[in-house]
Simulated assay, not measured.
Amino acid sequence: MMEYESNKIDNEKPQGAAVEDVLAAMIAFDHGDARRIQHFLKVYAYASLLGKREGLPDNTQRLLEIAAILHDIGIHAAEEKYGSSAGIYQEKEGPAPARELLQKLGFVPAFIDRVCFLIGHHHTYQGVDGPDYQILLEADFLVNAYEDQLSEKGIRAFREKVFRTKSGRQLLDVIYGLTPEEGEA
């Protein structure tokens, strides 16, 4: 896995609103859409847990949590513009409203840029360039597998192709009752 230049984020003094303020802003953004609110709250919880278990630096952890909260911010615009909530449209429509929200909440440009990058790639499984990106993919899948009622075969295939963190694999296995197949670590 390639690493992005995390020192741009990790060496900065935290700025911007608290995670709780971002949660409140996103709940307000998705007002009346309990399903979407429930979804991003679960993704946030898993991302927070996985980031902590993987030992992310504090600023990267905070960035991951905020990206998890905002990752689907483009769904409503995608549905209006394309009549679809497909991942490609979420990625296309999400960064602009996320950038606006984060600017209003006082975040610095490098932080906003990284969050918007993650939002714009949270359904793209190639070119993962950092642990924040990897963990966001895993956290979103942990929730989507349940919400979409994926088969065990589908979950195993995704595990093999996408999951890279030890914590993510362990959590996926426990949640979905998977036991490693022969030759699988």
Rank of each mutant, 00 (worst) to 15 (best):
M2C: 07
M2E: 12
E3V: 00
E3F: 03
E5Q: 13
K8L: 15
K8G: 06
I9K: 07
I9D: 05
K13V: 15
G16S: 10
A17N: 00
V19H: 04
D21S: 15
L23E: 14
A25F: 06
F29V: 05
H31P: 03
H31Q: 14
G32R: 05
G32W: 06
G32L: 04
D33P: 03
D33Q: 13
D33N: 14
R36D: 01
I37K: 00
F40L: 05
K42I: 06
Y44K: 00
Y44D: 06
A45P: 00
A45Q: 10
Y46H: 15
A47Q: 01
K52H: 13
R53P: 07
E54T: 08
E54K: 10
G55D: 13
G55M: 06
L56V: 07
L56Y: 09
P57A: 15
P57K: 02
P57G: 04
D58W: 08
D58F: 10
N59K: 13
T60Y: 05
Q61D: 05
R62I: 01
R62Q: 07
I66R: 14
L70I: 12
H71D: 09
D72E: 12
I73F: 06
G74C: 07
I75Q: 11
A77H: 04
A78Y: 02
E80K: 15
G83P: 00
A86T: 05
I88Y: 12
I88R: 15
E91T: 06
K92E: 15
P95N: 05
P95M: 03
P95Q: 03
P97L: 01
P97I: 01
A98F: 03
L102R: 01
L102G: 02
A110F: 04
I112M: 02
D113G: 08
R114P: 00
C116K: 04
C116H: 05
C116R: 06
L118M: 10
I119Q: 00
I119A: 00
I119W: 02
H121D: 05
T124Y: 04
Y125C: 00
G127I: 00
G127R: 09
P131G: 08
P131I: 10
Y133K: 06
Q134N: 10
L136M: 05
L137V: 01
E138I: 02
F141V: 02
L142A: 02
V143N: 01
N144G: 08
A145Y: 01
Y146E: 14
Y146I: 10
S151K: 08
E152V: 14
G154H: 11
G154V: 04
I155Y: 07
R156K: 10
R156H: 09
A157F: 11
A157E: 14
A157G: 08
R159E: 14
E160S: 11
K161I: 03
F163D: 01
F163N: 01
R164V: 08
R164L: 10
R164S: 13
G168R: 03
R169N: 12
L171Y: 08
Y176P: 04
G177S: 11
L178F: 11
P180E: 09
P180R: 13
P180T: 04
E181S: 12
G183V: 07
A185R: 14
A185H: 11
